[in-house]
């Protein structure tokens, strides 16, 4: 009886502590979400939590202003008309997509080929090259910035999408190969052998069997590329036509640091896709995380 009572009490304590931690972790985010739907004046006058008292003030104007790219007129509390320059984030959103899709497909494809080669094809120097790849996990992208910037200047690649695709490919490869190698090694050899007996070549086995498995690792690369700021700043440069969402958000923090109504909606625009991916594919994401750490 005593044991039972203790158990109920400790479960209660556990749940309360867990709840408090979850609240602490979640509390910063709704502020952003709510603020992105509030009109400019209200945002700078009152805290976002006052929305509970006055829910009718919510508006889509901030998003209109950010996405349509037109000048935007609004009437302030004192009856003054203020015209603000709009920001065209739609273009940046498309740029982000243009950067991200190939910057995910290319490295995952190359990494899957390499991981397959390392795991299942025998060739001289296999051990040596694999150790080399794992050793490169240590090299941070910072170290490559200056030499690459010079190469790109010579090749006239700066500000070009190809430049950033290749950069993300280079920086993402070691981890991708390492994760995929761990993963491909766990596929039973018997499956492979029966495929050989059926007359498949390495290439067909790879395309039919391994490539579909690799897809779940694309999530990492996606989040990494989409959320990246440094690589974009360095290799895409300041040109408006090519800059991606994180760059534009960074610009906005600098140039309109106090315009919370636009900053918050801008930030939310950059987060929509990663959040969707995250909620849709959380299972794969966690599986990938764990696969990478097994031998860690």
């Amino acid at each position: 009886m005593q044991f039972r009572k203790n158990k109920i009490r400790s479960t209660f304590i556990v749940n309360v502590m867990l709840f408090l931690l979850c609240v602490a972790w979640t509390l910063p985010t709704p502020g952003l979400f709510v603020t992105s739907f509030r009109p400019r004046d209200e945002v700078s006058r009152t805290g976002w939590w006052t929305i509970v008292r006055n829910p009718s003030e919510l508006t889509l104007n901030n998003y209109r202003q950010l996405l349509a790219g037109k000048d935007f007129t609004c009437v302030t509390a004192d009856g003054l008309k203020v015209t603000e320059k709009g920001n065209n984030l739609t273009k940046a959103l498309l740029n982000s997509l243009t950067v991200t899709v190939p910057a995910v497909v290319i490295p995952i494809l190359i990494a899957a080929f390499a991981a397959y080669g390392f795991a299942w094809i025998n060739f001289p120097g296999r051990k040596f090259f694999f150790v080399l790849v794992v050793a490169l996990l240590v090299v941070s992208l910072q170290i490559a910035l200056i030499p690459l910037l010079r190469d790109y200047m010579k090749l006239n690649l700066n500000g070009n999408y190809l430049a950033i695709w290749l950069a993300h490919t280079g920086f993402g490869l070691p981890l991708a190969i390492y994760l995929l190698f761990n993963y491909i090694s766990t596929v039973p050899r018997s499956i492979l052998e029966s495929a050989f007996i059926d007359g498949c070549s390495h290439f067909t086995i790879f395309v039919r069997l391994i490539l579909p498995l690799s897809a779940s690792f694309a999530i990492f690369q996606f989040l990494w590329v989409w959320n990246d700021l440094l690589v974009a700043l360095v290799f895409l440069g300041a040109k408006r036509e090519v800059s991606v969402l994180t760059q534009r958000l960074f610009d906005m923090i600098g140039s309109r640091g106090q315009d919370w109504h636009l900053l918050t909606s801008g930030a939310f625009i950059t987060m929509i896709l990663p959040l969707l991916v995250f909620f849709g594919l959380q299972r794969f994401f966690i599986r990938g995380l764990l696969a990478g750490s097994v031998k860690g």
Binding site: L21, C22, W25, T26, P28, T29, G31, L32, L223, W226, N227, D228, L229, T246, L249, F250, I253, L263, T264, G266, A267, T270, M271, P274, L275, V277, F278, Q282
Partner: peptide, 15 residues
């Protein structure tokens, strides 16, 4: 708890 991992450093910065 896991959610913030999906957000960029810069988005988290704004938050």
């Amino acid at each position: 708890i896991f959610l913030p991992m999906a957000i960029s450093f810069i988005g988290a910065g704004v938050i």
